[in-house]
């Protein structure tokens, strides 16, 4: 009871920025639910859910990946307060995306899913792998796991870069020639997000003094400990 109460209090104490970003991140889900309730998921609901959840997962994942550079390079430290929330939303959308595929699209036909899709089609494999790697990150996103894992937490969570690459490949490999521009755009964004993490590039880009960068890094560590 006490824990629940404390949890609710921390939740409510989040700032306006956290609430805005979190609610904005949930709009695709709310939109889907609203459309489902009003019977308007379109001619092919499976396809609608697939498209919305897939893009929402990618976008929230990328937003989550942009938090650290926003803070370290542009000094927008508040970005770090929404990093976890955005990452968890990416996991939520990825889960819905997978559930839609397994349940509504393939009707839980495991034989078809494994033989025709998973073993046969690289894009399914890439997507499945991305989800598998995202799963431990979601599980260990709590403060308790952060403490327990210590330094290894950060190492483990670097897997998110691999998840990003796999997710973009998943998108690219299923796209038609005429529609490749969209996964390509995501690929460019991801490349930027990964490039700015290379220390040499980050230092060059930084709009603040090296001292401030150091401070931000320290703030980042502190935040991680208390989150």
């Amino acid at each position: 009871m006490k824990i629940l109460y404390a949890g609710a209090i921390t939740f409510l104490h989040r700032g306006g920025f956290w609430w805005s970003v979190t609610l904005a991140g949930l709009t695709p889900l709310l939109w889907l639910l609203w459309r489902a309730a009003s019977g308007g998921l379109g001619v092919d609901p499976v396809n609608t859910i697939n498209n919305v959840t897939g893009r929402a997962a990618l976008i929230t994942l990328f937003l989550s990946l942009s938090c650290t550079p926003l803070s370290a390079i542009f000094g927008f430290r508040r970005a770090l307060t929404v990093r976890k929330s955005l990452g968890l939303m990416a996991f939520l959308y990825a889960s819905l995306h997978l559930l839609n595929f397994v349940g509504l699209d393939y009707g839980l036909n495991l034989k078809l899913i494994v033989q025709d899709a998973l073993l046969n089609k690289p894009y399914i494999l890439a997507g499945g792998l991305a989800f598998l790697l995202l799963l431990p990150l979601a599980i260990t996103s709590t403060r308790g796991w952060m403490k327990r894992l210590g330094k290894r937490w950060k190492q483990l969570h670097r897997l998110v870069y691999v998840v990003g690459v796999l997710a973009v490949l998943h998108f690219f490999w299923q796209a038609k020639v005429a529609e490749r521009w969209e996964p390509m755009a995501y690929a460019v964004l991801l490349a930027l997000l990964l490039l700015v993490r290379i220390p040499q590039i980050r230092r060059k880009l930084s709009v603040r003094s090296p001292k401030a960068v150091n401070m931000a890094a320290r703030a980042d560590r502190t935040l991680q400990q208390f989150e």
Binding site: V43, D44, V46, D105, Y106, N109, L112, D116, A117, N120, K121, Y123, W173, Q174
Partner: peptide, 10 residues
């Protein structure tokens, strides 16, 4: 890119 063994009837 994908299997043609099955289909989804709209």
């Amino acid at each position: 890119r994908w299997s043609q063994a099955s289909e989804r009837r709209i």
